[in-house]
Computed example of a mutant assay.
Amino acid sequence: MQTRILVAYASKYGSTKEVAESIADTLHENGLAVDLKPGREVRSLENYSAVVLGAPIYILHFHKDAQGFLSRHHEALTKLPVAFFALGPLSNEAEEWKEVRVQIDKDLAKFPWFRPVEIKIFGGKFDPKNLRFPDNLLIRLPASPIHDMPASDTRDWTEIRSWASSLAALF
């Protein structure tokens, strides 16, 4: 049986989807069969040898679709190697990266059975022009952490492809 990898993702504005696409492309370039799907659309993990799951951090938690994916596929995920990535930090400040890691660890602790072979954090993307209701209200509130925040994109595409290549060797 050929090694078939599922790259599943949760994405609200498309940034995590773009990273998942890059990971899927890199895995494919490394000779693996890959399916790329939104996590909420995955019905079964039966035909997969491994899973890569990606989620953005929104308002101090990783995306609910990723949490739902973990809950729905609990039994299958205990039998497969799984790599998890998250997008979160919107700057290159070390403290922000530490805070995101602490939050990911807290969220993953809700799934004590989940033991990913890899956990990776990538920088995130923020564009206030693309925010939809109710998120667009947050940029108007002076007490909001994103009030008047400029657009940013801290995703490192070289690092993303390098990590995906390392997963290809692992899987």
Rank of each mutant, 00 (worst) to 15 (best):
H74W: 07
E75S: 13
T26Q: 05
L32M: 09
D35R: 07
R72W: 04
R43V: 09
D35H: 05
V42G: 11
K37P: 10
D25H: 01
A50K: 02
A50G: 11
F84K: 03
S49P: 01
N47I: 04
T78A: 02
S22C: 12
G88E: 10
D35K: 05
F69W: 03
P56I: 08
L60D: 14
R72Y: 04
Y48H: 05
G68S: 12
D35Y: 08
H73E: 02
S49H: 13
S44Y: 15
A24D: 00
A66P: 04
E75F: 09
F84G: 03
A55W: 14
A66M: 11
A55D: 10
K64L: 08
F85W: 10
S71N: 11
V51F: 06
I59Q: 12
F85Q: 00
A83H: 01
V19W: 06
R72A: 11
I23M: 12
A20F: 02
A76H: 15
D25R: 02
S22T: 08
A83E: 03
L60F: 15
H74M: 03
K17I: 12
L32W: 02
L32F: 06
V34L: 00
A20W: 06
N47F: 14
A86I: 11
V34T: 05
I59R: 07
I23Q: 05
G54H: 06
P38A: 15
R43N: 10
E75Y: 03
F84I: 07
K17M: 13
P38N: 14
R43C: 04
R40N: 14
I57V: 15
F84V: 14
L53K: 01
V19K: 00
S44H: 14
V34R: 01
A76K: 11
H74N: 08
Y48T: 05
S71Y: 12
A83M: 09
A55N: 12
P81R: 06
K64R: 10
H63M: 04
L60K: 13
A55M: 12
G68C: 09
K17Q: 12
I23C: 03
D35P: 01
H63L: 06
T26H: 00
E29S: 10
K17L: 09
E41Q: 13
S22I: 01
L32N: 00
L53G: 13
Y48N: 03
V34G: 00
H74Q: 15
V52H: 07
V42Q: 10
H73L: 05
R40K: 15
D25P: 00
L53D: 13
H28M: 07
G39Y: 02
I57L: 15
R72K: 12
F85T: 03
L60T: 11
V34A: 02
D35W: 02
V52L: 04
K17G: 10
V51H: 07
D35I: 02
K79M: 14
N30K: 07
Y58K: 08
L70Y: 00
T78D: 06
D65S: 13
F84T: 07
P81A: 05
E75H: 07
P38R: 13
H63C: 03
A33P: 02
P38H: 10
H73D: 04
A76P: 01
L53Y: 04
E41C: 10
R40M: 14
P81D: 11
E41V: 08
Y48D: 01
V82H: 02
L87F: 00
K37C: 13
V42N: 14
A66K: 05
L77A: 01
A66G: 08
T78P: 03
K37Q: 15
E29M: 07
E21W: 04
L53T: 08
E41P: 04
